[in-house]
């Protein structure tokens, strides 16, 4: 998908530039945008080093586990059809916790583990269960306490106040998440399938 889009963007750019006589401008832009990306990466390194360092401390100190204790009851409420102490629940809690701290690297392996555990409870192995659909929807708008890459990017782009977006983003993803969960619970009745 992304391959098609990327190719289409470049092909369309060259076609547009050629028809409007802007090919020379386009030539300059190619090297300009590469220069921008290098400057950007240098700025990005600073922020990423900061946040990944801080988050490592949060991980090692057990703060991440503390957060997962808060998340567990919420997930139990949403996934009321699942056994509350199973492996599936544990993996989903860890996935959610990692997402909330912007630890994308940790979130994906735990998410895959959760899907694996949910599949063990599935009776029709090629049809998604309600819990699987819900879990994926939750992954579409995870609330983030520390959106590390966005914060780093904002400071490297000269923001006077990179952290100004943390609170609005948090409120926003809670709203998006609630909307998604409601939509999911309503839709699951119409698409058949099993628990």
């Amino acid at each position: 998908m992304i391959n098609k889009i990327w190719f289409f963007m470049i092909a369309m750019a060259v076609a547009f530039a050629a028809t409007s006589g802007k090919l020379a401008l386009l030539n300059d832009e190619i090297f300009n945008s590469l220069k921008t990306s290098v400057e950007l990466a240098l700025g990005l390194i600073g922020g990423m080093v900061l946040w990944c360092g801080v988050l490592k401390v949060a991980e090692k100190s057990g703060l991440v586990d503390k957060l997962s204790l808060l998340i567990r009851p919420v997930l139990r409420l949403i996934f009321n059809e699942l056994p509350s102490k199973g492996n599936a629940m544990g993996a989903m809690v860890m996935n959610m916790t990692s997402n909330m701290l912007g630890l994308g690297n940790a979130a994906t392996p735990m998410g895959l583990k959760a899907m694996d555990e949910l599949q063990k409870l599935n009776t029709k192995k090629d049809v998604a269960t309600n819990a699987m659909c819900l879990f994926l929807v939750i992954n579409a708008a995870p609330p983030q306490f520390i959106p590390a890459t966005v914060l780093s990017l904002r400071s490297s782009m000269g923001s006077a106040n990179p952290g100004i977006i943390i609170l609005p983003a948090l409120i926003n993803s809670m709203l998006a998440l609630t909307t998604g969960i409601i939509a999911c619970k309503l839709l699951e009745r119409t698409t058949g399938g099993s628990r």
Partner: peptide, 28 residues
């Protein structure tokens, strides 16, 4: 995420997942 997660366990029929996820995204 949907491709990777469902792909990893061989689910073919994802039912309402995409619709609900897109609703969440649009709400976002």
């Amino acid at each position: 995420t949907i491709t990777i997660y469902f792909g990893s366990i061989g689910i073919k029929n994802i039912r309402h997942t995409l619709a609900a996820a897109l609703i969440a995204d649009l709400a976002g």
